[in-house]
Structure formats: structure tokens, C-alpha cells
Design a protein around this nucleic acid. Sequence first.
DNA 1: AATTAGCACTTAGAGAGGTAGAGTGCTAAG
DNA 2: CTTAGCACTCTACCTCTCTAAGTGCTAATT
Lengths: 337, 337
Amino acid sequence: MSDPRRLEVLRAIVEDYVHFREPVGSKVLVERHQLGVSSATIRNDMAALEEEGLIAAPHTSAGRIPTDKGYRLFVDQLASVKPLSAAERRAIHSFLDSASDLDDVLERSARLLSQLTRQVAVVQYPKASQARLRHLEVVALGGSQVLLVLITDTGSVDQRVVDLGQVLAESDVAVLRTMFLAACANQPLDALRETVPVLTATVAPGLQQPAAALAAALLSLLDSSAEERIVLAGTANLARATMDFPLSIGPVLEALEEQVVMLRLLTEMHQDQHGVAVSIGRENPFDELAGTSVVATGYGKGSASKVGVLGPTRMDYPSSMAAVRAVARYLSRILAG
Amino acid sequence: MSDPRRLEVLRAIVEDYVHFREPVGSKVLVERHQLGVSSATIRNDMAALEEEGLIAAPHTSAGRIPTDKGYRLFVDQLASVKPLSAAERRAIHSFLDSASDLDDVLERSARLLSQLTRQVAVVQYPKASQARLRHLEVVALGGSQVLLVLITDTGSVDQRVVDLGQVLAESDVAVLRTMFLAACANQPLDALRETVPVLTATVAPGLQQPAAALAAALLSLLDSSAEERIVLAGTANLARATMDFPLSIGPVLEALEEQVVMLRLLTEMHQDQHGVAVSIGRENPFDELAGTSVVATGYGKGSASKVGVLGPTRMDYPSSMAAVRAVARYLSRILAG
DNA sequence: AATTAGCACTTAGAGAGGTAGAGTGCTAAG
DNA sequence: CTTAGCACTCTACCTCTCTAAGTGCTAATT
């Protein structure tokens, strides 16, 4: 499969099918593209492409549509990432620069990406496990309750109200605060799982119980913040995309709500030479997503967190890849600054 | 319109239509319900009901389906709130008792409600403006940055990193903290909008600028936490519901994502004698939702925040009302405890 | 006055051809 | 290797018919 014209034919089929949303035949192909040969020749090429499983015909007298394998080859070898328009770049800047906190940034990114690509956007929360603890605070709330606050260097803040089981003097709270802070500051969150349990051993006898309660709360807080989440936007675009094709929208919506599915998918994908990961149709490990493709890439520290879009396999891959990459870059920049 | 049998016929039509999802005729009606009269009599009643605009026929030779007005009368006069099954009660308890923080509680509630009703569940975040400030904390982060944390008595915690513009000694941070805390503690958040701006006047000259920065951040934090949000669950149920009826799913999904729409709708609805608010079809102030109904009720302090479900007008109102009410009650209890 | 049986009437929907157009594969010639 | 030509195969669409469902009306009955 190295004949350059055949590759050109495949590209033309993919592009036309994405554009017009209907099977494309040999005749329109030569009309719409400067292929320099007749439709009969194209037919021979198409037969060969079908032989290789790159395209298929819904029925005898219809044109051809790309298979998953065809899209794959297109993405790997034929797609040049389409540069964003000036208007799109402007949109990214104006959209994200006005964001305030982390939640806001992620939500805006998702919305933006869904508007740019007219697809469903998915943004994973920055991974907490790789983050370091920037600050830890213990605040007395009155009674036996204190508030435990964790701030990581990714900018996320988690907190939980803890009942220490006994009323403590402000000075004792300060002791606990200092102790925990000294032990935890600047540690990666993962490391805390080991250091924290040991902490209570070194504490004064009278503070044993409260310290243990606090440690337990801290650990459970680590767990729940490591519990990863995603932000969605543009699910309505699914409805549009599903209009003309028998990709029933229900299971896809379920998969999206079942965040675990998307999280696993995002982490399992790995980026290709374009710096973008693409999972096409049945390549997806989930049957519900057999009719959809996901274009994703990493952002943030070590590109550990993912951002991407999900749409029908018949999607505009070059544009999607460009938009995803651009948003990821901008996201990284904002989070780093 | 007081003939009791006619009301009975309307009830039967609503129930059968909800159940079987197809127009119901006079014949099946007498077969399925013990009405004690012949189909001809029912036909007369149906003609009368149609005359009053309570039911309509899609075409001449189809049965009747309830109109929005018909559902309205059903809900107001004919529906007795269906008690939940034991299994459902158990589900509510086990689902919500294991929740940890506020976010978790709301998310679980939404999921639970969507599963109970097989519809889209909507949970509004507790209104912050009515809440009181339980605690305020200022934490030095190093450099000129501090973290401002607000904790309200509804259990929500908001925070923001503030750049004070100059490096402060810990003692100065303490001064600011004490000052703001004294001024704000136990105040309703709404009141803070007035007290906070005045605060900076009383402060020592050297702390003027940082105090102003802190005050500004606090006000903007109040604004963004007053910015109301909703939690959604079960949007996939829309797809199921839309299968058989020409309620195009796209606009509805858009309206749901456009949280403003749902927020306005929820706040504008008011509860009827069942303690539940129902907005049916074209009663909704938004055209996109003309084919859907919303069943909602308040929860939490003063029932100021709303929880509800959205589904096709052809929905099981009694069950939905029961589920919504039950979840709202349980939610209130958890948040109060 | 309300109910009922009977009947004529309307209509959507399902099926049965019949046709046109699109697209293919193949063959034979350039 | 390419191309023109052609026979072949489908689907999509139209029309026609027929059936089943359901109605409204009238006249008889309680």
C-alpha cells in the first residue's frame, strides 16, 4: 500500500465523507478533486483500498465510506494538523484569560473546546497525586470541630471538616498544625500516604486521639482528591452528530456520565507523532464508544492530565487535533504561570 | 367540568398514555379500567374533554393523548403522591449516608434521583447569599500571596489566592485575619457586601493596601460563590425518552448545559399543595423545554435551594413527585445535621 | 336525560409493485 | 496502466391499495 495516488484517493474519500456526510462514489471524486485520471481508474483504486479494509461500501450501489482502519491511516499518514484561524486563536485567549480559579479555567476550557470543534469536550482535572503540598492549614471551628485545608501547587484546594472527638485549646490546635505542616509541606501527595500514619506516634499523649483523627481525615482527603474527575461540555453536539447516523446517543451519554470510562480511556491513550492521541471507533476499549473517536492530548506538568474531544468517527480529525493541541498548550501555560 | 366520571376518564387516559406511550382509544379504556359503562359513553366523555382542551387526537383515527392542560388538571386534582417502595427508601439511605462533603452529597443526590425516576435530575447548589459566614481564614503562602478561605454554615468552602502586593510579616497577617474575622463572623453573606468595603478605613496606614486587596478579593469571592450552579445527572435518560417521540434532544441538552436556563426555571416555579412545583410543557418559560416537564421542590434552609427532575411531558408525575420530595427531605436532613 | 348499539366515515401505516438514479465491476481497447 | 462502455445491482422514492383503529352521529333503550 504505497501507491501515492491510492493514498490520495483515500484522503479524498475521508475528506469528502467528513464534509458531505454521505458515501462518496468514484464519479464525484474525480469531479471534486484534481486526480488527473478517470473514474474507472479511481474505481480500480477503490477496489484495492476496499481489499485492504480501508474503505467499505454500505451496499452495492452506494459509494464508499472509510473504515476505522481507513481513518487510522488517514490520521497517521495523511493528516497535516490544520493551523487555527486567527479568530480561533483570539477566542482561546479571550476565553481563558478572564478565568479566575482552577475550576473556572477547566470549565471554560471545556466550553471553548466544544465550541471550537462542535463536539463533546472532555477535560480531566489535574492529577493530584503528582502535585506537591503547598500549604496545610488547621482551623478551629468551635466545639471539637476543625477544618483541614490542603493546598497543592497545581492550585487545587481541598478541605474537610473534622471532628477531633474532644475540645482542644487553640494552643493545642497550633501544635497539631505545626506538626502536620512540618511533616507534610512540600511533599508530593503520594509520599504523604506513608509519612502521615507514622506522625501520630511522636505526639504528646494528650493529643494522641485528635492527632489520629486528623491524620485519618487527611488520608481520606488524599484519597478523595486523587479520585479523578472530568469536566464535560457540549454534550448537545452529540445530538447533532447523531442526527444523520445510527450512532445511538444514549449509551454514549451514559459512558460520559460514567466518568470512570472516560478516565480510563484518556489515561490509556498514548500520543503519536503529532503530540496528540487518537482513538478511533472500535479501537476504543468500550463497546459503547464503537461509533465514536476521541482526540486527546496531555497538559500541565508532565502532560499528566488530559484534555480532548469526543465525536463520531466521521469527524474532522485535523481540525480537532489542532484545537485540542492549542487548548492544551494554553491550559499548560495558564496553570504554570 | 365536575362530572366525576369524566375526571376518572381523564385520569385513565393520562395513566394509560404514560404507561403505554401511545394514544389511547375508547375501547381499550373500558377494557383496562372498571368504568362500568360502554365505549360509546366514554366517547361522549372524551369529546367533552377534548372540547375543554384537556385531551387531543393526533389524527382522526388515533386515540387521544393528554394536552399540557390535561396533565395540569391531573397533577392538581387527580394525582395522589405515590408512596415510595421500601427498596427505594433503602436506596436513598444507603446512597446518601455514605457521602462525605457537600459536593459529594449533591452529586449523589442527583444520581440517585435520576435512577429513581429514570429522568434527568437537577440539583441546585445551596444558595450562598442566605448563608452565614461560619469562619474566615487568611493563610500566608509565602511571598506576597495569601490564601483567603470562607466557610459558610451550609458547609460550602470557597477560597482564593490573593496577591497583597507586598510581603507581610506573619504578625501583620494575623492582624488582618483578626480584623476581618471580627467584622465578618456570623454575618449573612449578603451583609458582608456592605460591611467589608468600610473595613479598610479603620486599618493602620501601613496595612491599607493589603487590606484593600483582601477586601476586594473577599467581595469578588462573594460574587462568584453567589454565582449559582447546578448538578446534573442522568442526561442519558433523555435519549431513551426521546426515542419514541419527536422531542428533539439537542435543544434540551443545550438548555441543561446553559445552567442559567435551569436556574431561572427552578427559582420561578412555586410549590403547590403537594409541596412540589410542577411546570408542564408550554407552561415553561423556555421554548426549548416545550416538550418537557419539570418537577421540583425546595430543600435546605428555608427550602431556598431546589432539587428536581426534568423529563418528557408524558412522565409519571406521581412517582416523580414522590421521589423528588423524598430526596429533598433527606437532603435537608443531611445538610442540617 | 343518560346510555348504548350500530354504522358510516376518516386516516395512518403497512405492504406491494414499479421506476429512476447512482454506483459498481468487468471486459476489451488504447 | 488507463479508460470507455456496458450490464448489473441496489436503494430510495413514488404510488396504489388495503386494513385496522378509532371516531362521531343517529336512533333505540333504560
